[in-house]
């Protein structure tokens, strides 16, 4: 709700937290039927709509995984992957992640069918990577526990391995970052890692992918993982939505025109959608160009030129964002800003929150408030300014992150070192 001066948002505390039961959105709500598109329901892995994950991570655990993903993304921009311990110590409290894991933790998943007859699998979708893979029988080396039955290629009539000599095999490196291998039977072997030991290795294969009952993709190239480790929770694998040619976006270019969209729900107890093809929906769209962030091709780079708090542009020199560069990533939970930008955001936001009592820091979030005495609060609006004049206002749930009503924090974190 916008308060009279339109530079502040009225946020109801209850709206920041998931409810016990799931509120599904009507899948047709945003579909414009006349155009070719395919819409999948998006659920948050750790909410009541989810796949019944064993246990949700605490905020601190989530932020540790989130920081590891951010470190890994930064390492790609710094030219080489550094061992985790050489990266700067993060503010996130160190919780030993079990078997590796930085697929990140803010996982949004969709249900797709694979093979003939189709078998349903819950896959994480990730704009920060390109390869789609799932765990496959016989799990020659290792499969982590997943909710859905592990995909069995032997039971599908449309499955085939890609041979080492196939051009599809040669193109793997740009999408996974690793040279493909070759098995004794001349089958193409892929390997992908997501940072700090989480990875998937297996056969690069072709299969029929069913997005919805009416949208079936034949000869879809994906990874059939025989050795998979990481805290992917109960998800069966991952859908890569990056810009490499092995991404589902490029593989379905003819059908969907290289357009996809998603909406991530306010809380983990409601659902969103992932749509392939040009879908209508949510009002007029404001566009900004995709740029190549610092020459790392597969990420979706954006040109942020500034930010506004409470309707006023905050003092950040334009060079701050042009030096750091910026990407948008569905797999990173908390937005990371260059240090100067974060400190300007923090001080402007604090000025607009003086009436509320402070609360202790929450891991990487250092600007927190005790709002347990309020049913609703009035907070300064926060907006991103992109080159070309596009200005995007954030929802209240995009400005505040609540671990509990007595610890509600500004949902941004500063990078440590401007060059990252």
């Amino acid at each position: 709700k916008i308060s009279p001066d339109s530079h502040h948002l009225t946020v109801e505390l209850a709206g920041l937290f998931p409810s016990a039961s799931c509120t599904r959105r009507s899948p047709q709500a945003h579909i414009s039927s006349q155009r070719e598109q395919s819409s999948l329901e998006v659920i948050h892995r750790h909410g009541p709509c989810g796949v019944g994950d064993s246990k949700s991570p605490t905020a601190a655990e989530m932020f540790v995984q989130d920081q590891a993903r951010v470190d890994f993304i930064n390492s790609k921009f710094s030219g080489k992957f550094k061992a985790m311990d050489s990266l700067r110590p993060s503010k996130a409290t160190k919780i030993p992640a079990k078997s590796g894991a930085t697929i990140g933790s803010g996982n949004y998943i969709v249900n797709v069918g694979l093979g003939t007859p189709k078998k349903y699998l819950s896959l994480i979708f990730d704009t920060g990577s390109d390869l789609t893979w799932t765990q496959c029988e016989p799990c020659a080396r290792y499969c982590y526990d997943q909710k859905d039955p592990v995909f069995a290629p032997s039971q599908s009539t449309t499955y085939s391995n890609i041979t080492c000599s196939s051009p599809d095999c040669a193109q793997l490196e740009s999408g996974t970052g690793n040279q493909p291998g070759c098995s004794a039977a001349k089958s193409c072997i892929y390997g992908i890692q997501y940072g700090d030991q989480s990875f998937s290795v297996g056969y690069f294969a072709k299969e029929t992918l069913t997005l919805t009952s009416t949208d079936v993709i034949d000869n879809f190239l994906f990874g059939c993982g025989q050795n998979n480790r990481g805290l992917f929770g109960s998800a069966a694998g991952l859908i890569g939505l990056g810009q490499d040619k092995i991404s589902i976006v490029k593989q379905t270019a003819q059908k969907y025109g290289q357009i996809f969209s998603y909406c991530l729900p306010k809380t983990s107890s409601s659902t969103g959608y992932l749509t392939f093809g040009s879908g209508g929906g949510g009002g007029a769209l404001k566009y900004t160009p995709i740029i190549e962030a610092h020459g790392v091709a597969n990420f979706y780079g954006l040109n942020i030129v500034g930010m506004k708090v409470g309707g006023t542009q905050i003092p950040i020199s334009p060079s701050v964002f042009s030096t750091s560069g910026a990407i948008i990533d569905s797999g990173t939970v908390i937005t990371r800003l260059p240090p100067d930008a974060y400190s300007a955001l923090k001080s402007a936001f604090q000025k607009g929150m003086v009436r509320y009592p402070k609360a202790p820091e929450l891991s990487i979030l250092d600007t927190c408030y005790d709002l347990s005495k309020y049913a609703a609060v009035s907070i300064p609006k926060v907006s991103f300014l992109f080159k070309g004049g596009t200005e995007i206002d954030l929802d209240g749930t995009g400005i505040l992150y609540g671990a509990s009503t007595d610890q509600v924090c500004l949902a941004f974190a500063g990078n440590r070192d401007p060059s990252t």
């Binding site: 954006l302 560069g325 990533d329």
Partner: peptide, 30 residues
């Protein structure tokens, strides 16, 4: 690198028009 995370994207309809080289944002997407 600055990274716009998924918390900040909540309720926005985020349209990746990769062929068109642009990203669109719409309010009240969900």
């Amino acid at each position: 690198i600055a990274i716009i995370g998924n918390v900040q994207q909540k309720t926005l309809q985020v349209v990746y028009d990769v062929g068109g080289g642009k990203i669109g944002f719409g309010y009240n997407g969900c």
